[in-house]
Design a protein around this nucleic acid. Structure first.
Lengths: 197, 197
DNA sequence: ACAGTTCTGGACTTGAGAGTCCATTTTGCG
DNA sequence: CGCAAAATGGACTCTCAAGTCCAGAACTGT
């Protein structure tokens, strides 16, 4: 029911979303204009409003979806297989490395701190992302519990919530201060806590 | 060297900053206009630019300073006297209660997620805030260590960094999803970790 | 190939908000 | 009092970006 879209049209639409995402990651949500996006993606205003009749808001929502997918994808395969302490460490390293390497260029930070609060629809995207993420971490904790590597008394969901919060806070702080310490400390402390519980 | 300011002038300037802070907390940074601020504070454009010749940016910087002070003040007296587990719990409850009670109306969230990245000057304000906060938490940990209530092996600064990150993440998530779980989980897990270390 | 639809380009309109300017009032002070 | 500096009000300009519109090119299926 969405729309009749030819192959070419779908490609253009996709190009716009990807270009807008990149532009926003690089320059921030507030400073990016539709014209910037047109320039970058070699499209025109007409096309932009053709594919996103709702204008800026609708495009931003599509960008939010796109970015949300990236956040989880970028943590794979680690996040999906937290079955040993080595795996947890690898995941931790992957998360830290990613943010060390790309600095400001961060989908999650943009999503949560800039897009998230704007409209109900984009809030829903963020909420779903957080939920999935937390669930995957919780799943990892439960697997470790089955293998009796983590005490059964640990509340998997609650610990997962704390870990996700720690990462998110670490990333926020990094985006504002440029320092990575907090992210590392949050992850290390959380994992350490799971170990000794 | 700043400026010759009469008592009346200083009062007006102060009124503008306070009004702007409130307006931003209530409606978000991007949606608030200078005219909104004028209306709320019963001032005019002329006054606004008289006191903040640098315009919007300069005003925002003053707001950032103002809000940064609130963040720490609002956690007192708890944050300054983390000398027993009861005190830690009281602090934890104060933080949670504050966010439960005021929801979106949050200086820290606004600061970190909206103002922080804008200009170098506002980044500096945020960086200083985080530093002070972390230091106060670390100080609390050290006092507990002196009283042998926390193991001496704990790295106070690193743990404090993790705690601040957890709170920040919890607040960010709350601002986007409306749920308080993550903030509570982060604080509880962090304190629990200090206890059992 | 041809009719209908989708896609594309870009000029144009519109609205909003930051910043300017200056006339007027109030205050500080000798 | 009386002058200079500071404070105030508000109309005005300027810029810029979102969104509109339409004409023309490219593609679709029959």
């Amino acid at each position: 029911m969405t729309k009749p879209l030819t192959a070419k049209g779908a490609a253009t639409r996709q190009r716009i979303v990807a270009g807008a995402s990149a532009e926003i990651r690089e320059h921030g949500l507030q400073t990016v204009t539709l014209e910037d996006i047109c320039r970058r993606t070699a499209t025109s205003k007409g096309q932009l409003f053709h594919y996103f009749p709702g204008g800026r808001d609708e495009l931003l929502l599509a960008v939010a979806d796109h970015e949300a997918a990236r956040v989880l994808d970028d943590q794979q395969p680690y996040l999906g297989a937290l079955t040993s302490w080595t795996a947890w460490q690898a995941w931790r390293d992957a998360v830290v490395a990613r943010y060390r390497h790309q600095g400001q260029n961060c989908p999650l930070g943009v999503l949560l701190s800039e897009v998230g609060r704007q409209t109900p629809a984009s809030r829903a995207v963020v909420t779903a992302l957080i939920g999935q993420w937390q669930q995957q971490v919780a799943h990892g904790i439960r697997e470790m519990q089955l293998a009796t590597k983590i005490a059964a008394s640990v509340d998997a969901d609650r610990s997962a919530a704390a870990i996700v919060a720690g990462i998110q806070g670490g990333v926020s702080i990094m985006l504002s201060t440029g320092e990575l310490n907090h992210l590392e400390a949050a992850l290390d402390s959380a994992i350490e806590a799971l170990r000794t519980a």
